[in-house]
Structure formats: C-alpha cells, structure tokens
Design a protein around this nucleic acid. Structure first.
Lengths: 330, 330
DNA sequence: TTGTAAGCGTTATCAT
DNA sequence: ATGATAACGCTTACAA
C-alpha cells in the first residue's frame, strides 16, 4: 500500500539513487528534479520502511521491554520513564506484556530478539542456570530490573536488603515487641525468580537478629490472611507489626482488619514495600518503602545503552537509594 | 553477532538454499548434509532474522498498541487480553506508551506504522479532522477503543450513554433528590478526545430530563473538590448523589469525605465509572459501571484482524454490554 | 547532476 | 539432492 523509493523513481523517470538524494537532502539534485520528486513523495505520503533500513544498517534503534501483569504494578509505572529516556537517546521502545507465565516470558524475549531489538530490559520471573544461558545465548545486551538472574547480567535495583533492615529498625523504634514478615512470593520460591523478596527477607532476618527481645515470624503462604488472624489472636499482649513484602499484601491485611473492627496503628502496626501509586487513595496512609522507580528506570536504560555502545562491557550490580516513608500505620 | 543462513552455508560448504531446506524441513536434503547443517545451526544458536523475513513476505505479523499512562489504568488492564488474543491468531503485540501528550501520540503511531505494524489499536487522545486524516494517510488498519475519531475508523466501546442513563435511573430509584455529574475531562474538551466522557455526559443529561423534580448539575473542572464542597454545603436538606465519570474521581471525593468526617451513603451517594481494579482495596465498595474490558479488548483485536484480512472492509461502530455494579455507595 | 551495482538476511522459483 | 537467481526496500560506494 505504501509507496516505495523505487516507485517514486519510476513515476519521476529517474533512478532511485536520485530520489534518495532528494529525499535525504544529501548530494546534489537538479532543482526541477528535486521538486518533482518531493511533490510525488508528499502526494503519496512517502515514509521509509524502517524494516528495510534496519536490515541495511544492522541497527533497529529499538529497545524491548518485557513487563508483567498489573499485579506488580510498580513496574508498569516505570514504562513511561523508560520510554522517555530511550527516546532522548534516539531509541524506540517496544513493550510486551507477560501474564506471569514462565514460558511466555521466554517466548516474548525470544520474539524481541528475533525482531532485532538492540537491547532488552526485563524484571524477570524466570531464574536459574538454564534461563541465564538462554539469555546469554541471545547475544543481546540485557539489563535486569530488580530481580537478578546472574552475575553475568547487569541488574539495577535498590538495596532491598538494607531497606528491610531499616524497616525493622523503624518498627522496633516505635515500640513494637513482635514483628511478622509477610511474603507470599516465598511460596513459589523454587520455580520463580523472587530475588527482590528474598533480599527483603534476608534483611528482615539480619535485622531481627540484632534485637534479642524482639519476637519475629515469617509468613510465606499465598493464603496469608488466616495466618495473620492466628498471629493476632494468640498474642494480644504483645504489640505486633506486620512488615509486608509488597504494598498490596499490606492493603489486604488492612482491609481484613477494617472488616474485623480493628484499627491501625492502635491494634497492630503495618508497613509495606514499593509505594505503589494507589496508596494515595487509601487511608490510613500506609507506611512503606519507596523504591525509586524513576531512578531505577533511568539508570537501567542508560546502562543498557552503554552496553549497546561499547565493545567491552562488564556486567554490574547497581544499587540505588530507596526512601522509607514513615506515614500513619506504625 | 547472530549467525545467518549464509554463514551456515559457507561453514557447511553448501548453498543457502540447501541450508534453508534443512532448517525448514522442506524439500529433500541428503541425510548427512542435513545433520551437518543442523549441528552448526544449533551450535551457533541460529534464529531467523524476522526483519528480513518480514521484508520478504511483506508481512510482519505484528500489531501495535498505543496505550496511555496509568492514570487511565483501565486500559492497561486490557493489554494482557489483547496480547493473548493476538497471539492466538499468530500475531506479536508491540505496545508503546504515550504520556498523555498529543504530539507523542502521533509520533508513536507514526513509529509503529514506519515499523510496518499490520494494524494498530489505540484509545486516542487526539481528535478532529486533521488527526483523522493523519490516521487514514497511514493506510493501515486501525481500531479505536473507547474514544471515537470518525465514522471512517472502527471504534469498539460500550454504550456509555445508556450506561449513564441507567446510572441516573439507579440513583433516582434510591431516593436521591439531587444528582451531580463530575467530569474533569470536560476541561480539556476542546483539545483532547474525550468522546467517552462526552457520551456519559450526554446520557446524564438525557436521563435527568426525564425527572422533573430531580435537581442536577455538572462539574467540569480539573479542580473539582472545592465545587463538591460547595454543593454539599449549600443543600444539606436534599439527598445528593455524585456520579463520577471515572472511578478515580469518585475515590478522590470519597477520600475527601472521609477526611471531613462524612460517611457514605449516609451523607451523600457516590457512583463511579470503569470498575478499575484497585476498587477491591477500597471500602466502602464503590458502586460503579463495569465497562467490560475483556469483551472490548477481544472484539477490538478480532475486528482489527478482520480488517487486515479482508480486501473490502467497512468501518463500524461496535457497542458492547456494560454492567451496573450496585454496591455500597448509593 | 545522475546512474549502476552490490549488499543487508530471508524466501520463492526455476534449473540442474 | 543441490544450486543459482531474483526479489523485498533501503543504503552506500563508485562510476559516468
């Protein structure tokens, strides 16, 4: 349907080289010829076929981004930032969504590679040696966001471990005697990449060890509300706080509490992770950790482009700052 | 970096035609030759360059989707469905995000067209004759979701107008004597495509006219909370309900009410539109209109593919069913 | 000022 | 069973 350089050339009775020269303002073209060419190009709304151009140049100037379902909405929020940042450097951003299936993720990554994306950004749910080899076999620059796959692939993240440690410190400083870490992803630990959550758990464990009197527990079920109920029932005398490895879990706990006539932070403390943007609609305001989406996104893009541009690139693990948001639920 | 058919051919000392035959299991190849070829292909992890293949075939088997910022999160929710549906029919889905700028939207659409997407799905924020001509000049199948651009371009939507009418009916049936339509997008009506909201407004106006005793008003400011405050103050004697052209506006009103010690539906009624998925975290449960995301997404894809496949296609306006969700705020 | 020719990686047709 | 050739649309070097 679209007109090509060859067709313009034919219509104008010149060679396609001449047409190109007129179109791209390169080299010299007879004034009258140029005008004729430009007129035809305009009339038929000529646009260069980027597939052909890319094939020729060996460059697509496109990045691929694999993103997940809105469950982990915090990643969706980065898309705009990634897009803008890539555009600044002249790259087009192609996003694909992966509905939380391990196979789909691989399939989509392969699809992006087959379409000659020059680099891929991903917050992977796959993990392990096999996946690592799969990624490396693509021979394409890749940057992971949050979830690490291996040392051989650059990962950009905030320091989740120290964030969890500081969170526990905050909880203790507020006088809580018992702290429970809620981390449903632990249930799929064997299969899926939950690196981010594991780092948080590690921080939790490490920090808790510093406080001998502090009672602590970890809930790692998908169906965590019953456990929360138990915890609250069995120890009314101790002031208890829940540290949730994700705001949405905290919101579920909050809703459950409200339905059962409990109030926060009077009856129990609550803290989340991620600072997802729907929090603004929720009250009380959830105390949480802001994971610096913007910084992570910008860094990830710039690191990816660095990798694309340089011959010799060494993979890195990059940690950015987070921010504890001490609001109303502790 | 990636190996090509030509390189395999050279390595194996055969022509690329033979390599192709072995790789694609088409035609006959000597057993020993085939094995040699397959071995090399595997060793170097051969993958066909889809740019080249598409150029040759004249088909990319890819769809483009232009989506907006998470503000209008309900569209983000469709992405998965679109993706799955397209995949079923053998298409790859490329998503680009547009941070609510009119120019970016055009730029991105053009980018998708230049990359030879076979069809484009979009819920446009641009409008008007010039934009229509821009879209038509692309000579690519396009389907709009929600916001209509013109008769010449297929639009898939729910019948927002009758949904708004029914909403008013519901409000009246609950005994409200005054109903206020909150529609901030009206503030950008001149510049942006807010077709969906205009349809809702139209339904509101039409339905209100049926009830002579019903008092009604429309708030069309971006900064609507002050107006809400006024409305509530000036008419305490009349039972008032707010119908919001979008759940997020309703949530803001709800939050404001909670901060001012008012309770729903005792002090005022509240109803939204869209049934965005964060509602599950909010209490009281917002009464709203479910806009059948899944149906719209599936229909849009299938209509787009129909358009791609058929020589003669007539643009349509397709209306799907919605559902009034009568919950706790009226 | 203009044109020819080769190439990007794949595929399809026709020949050997 | 294998190969040569042209084509997709664009670009670049090298003539004329």
């Amino acid at each position: 349907m679209a007109i090509t350089v060859n067709q313009i050339a034919e219509k104008c009775g010149v060679s396609r080289t001449t047409v190109l020269r007129a179109l791209n303002d390169r080299g010299s073209v007879g004034k009258e010829t140029r005008e004729r060419i430009l007129a035809v190009a305009k009339e038929y709304n000529y646009r260069p076929n980027l597939l052909a151009r890319s094939l020729n140049h060996g460059r697509t100037m496109s990045l691929g981004v694999v993103t997940i379902n809105i469950e982990n909405m915090y990643f969706v929020q980065s898309l705009n930032i990634i897009n803008k940042e890539a555009d600044k450097r002249g790259y087009f951003t192609n996003i694909v969504v992966c509905d939380e299936s391990l196979d789909w993720e691989k399939k989509l990554i392969q699809g992006l590679a087959d379409r000659q994306m020059e680099g891929i950004l991903i917050s992977p749910i796959n993990k392990g040696k096999e996946f690592e080899e799969f990624l490396l076999s693509l021979h394409i620059p890749i940057v992971c966001i949050g979830n690490q796959v291996s040392d051989a692939i650059t990962t950009v993240q905030v320091n989740e471990m120290t964030a969890a440690m500081e969170s526990v410190d905050l909880i203790v400083s507020k006088g809580y005697e018992r702290v429970v870490f809620i981390c449903p992803p632990l249930a799929v630990k064997e299969k899926e990449n939950i690196y981010v959550h594991e780092q948080r758990l590690l921080g939790f464990r490490t920090s808790v060890a510093k406080y001998p009197e502090l009672e602590s527990a970890v809930i790692g079920n998908t169906d965590y509300l019953p456990d929360v109920k138990c915890v609250i029932k069995e120890g009314r005398e101790k002031r208890t706080a829940f540290l949730c490895s994700g705001d949405s879990y905290a919101l579920n706990v909050m809703r459950w509490g409200q339905q059962n006539g409990m109030s926060i932070p009077k009856d129990y403390g609550l803290m989340g992770f991620d600072n997802i943007n729907i929090l603004e609609f929720i009250s009380p305001k959830l105390t949480t950790v802001s994971t610096n989406l913007e910084g992570v996104a910008v860094t990830a893009v710039s690191e990816l482009l660095a990798q694309i541009d340089s011959e010799e690139y060494s993979p890195k693990a990059i940690y950015l700052n987070y921010k504890i948001l001490d609001r109303e639920t502790l």
